[in-house]
């Protein structure tokens, strides 16, 4: 009987295992293999064992510059989404008193996320463009004489796009951590004479560490690998690691793209390990 029960667990887990073996584990292994392949204009993949794909990545000055830009994106977006996400989660968790209202406000935040990502990004164009609403308002109010050029197709636009897309991924885990905090701890802090800021900084923030770590991992991983936002809102002017890989792929240069991907993967894993040091995430899951 016990044997039958455990066998049913294997059967139930089999479809998922098979899907991830076929479409995740094998493909990632394939990227490792392909990164050592040779390539030519008329043949995408030539089985071989060469190191020049990696040599190209590490010897090119462009690589370091793109990583620098991508890290800067990461840091900016992480800082903004963290502060914004924490403040909004705090508002929802501690200032909104009824669960119904919390759910309503939460849904209000999530509805835009159910509309197409591309459409949501295209939507910035009439707002931030040369003749967009923001520029019209700036010129009309006399702040500037001519439309500001750096609002769209710039690093600024890309950061705006990221913050728009990813703040929710910071709010959800931090809110989740906040809701688990025993409210009597906050009362104790207040009774012991702590100010609102002190309670936030010394009680709430430490207890939210796992939520902050999960949100951060998600945001960092998404920004590091992104190429869609950079493409649409950067408009050819802005570089990123993901976009560099996507560009190589569009020229059908699979092996160099694979080598670049392996380096990116290594960097992302390092960043995640760094973030994991701050909190034990396994407890949360």
């Amino acid at each position: 009987m016990e044997w039958l029960r455990s066998r049913s667990a294997y059967l139930q887990a089999a479809p998922l295992s098979l899907i991830f073996l076929l479409f995740f584990v094998l493909p990632i292994a394939m990227v490792v293999v392909v990164s050592f392949f040779d390539y030519q204009a008329y043949q995408i993949l030539i089985p071989d064992f060469v190191l020049f794909n990696y040599q190209d990545v590490f010897s090119s000055e462009v690589t370091y510059r793109t990583y620098f830009i991508t890290f800067r994106f990461c840091l900016m977006v992480w800082a903004i989404t963290l502060v914004l996400g924490f403040a909004i989660a705090y508002f929802l968790a501690f200032h909104i008193r009824t669960i119904t209202m919390q759910i309503v406000l939460f849904l209000l935040c999530t509805i835009p996320f159910w509309t197409s990502i591309v459409i949501r990004m295209i939507a910035w164009i009439p707002l931030l463009g040369r003749n967009g609403l923001v520029n019209n308002a700036l010129v009309a109010s006399g702040f500037t004489d001519a439309p500001v050029e750096w609002l769209l197709y710039s690093e600024f636009a890309v950061v705006i796009g990221y913050v728009h897309l990813y703040t929710l991924f910071m709010i959800v885990p931090i809110f989740n951590s906040m809701m688990r905090i025993d409210r009597s701890l906050l009362e104790a802090a207040t009774d012991a004479g702590a100010s609102g800021w002190q309670t936030t900084w010394n009680v709430i923030v430490p207890l939210c560490k796992p939520g902050i770590a999960i949100g951060s991992i998600f945001v960092v991983a998404m920004v590091m690998g992104d190429f869609v936002t950079v493409n649409v809102l950067g408009g050819g002017q802005v570089a990123s690691v993901g976009k560099a890989i996507a560009a190589e792929l569009s020229y059908l240069q699979f092996p160099p793209a694979a080598a670049n991907s392996m380096v990116l993967l290594g960097v992302v894993i390092l960043l995640i390990m760094l973030l994991m040091r701050f909190a034990d995430i396994r407890k949360e899951l």
Partner: peptide, 9 residues
């Protein structure tokens, strides 16, 4: 995992 890596794989 960066999606582009999965896609490429």
């Amino acid at each position: 995992m960066p999606s582009i890596v999965v896609s490429l794989g």
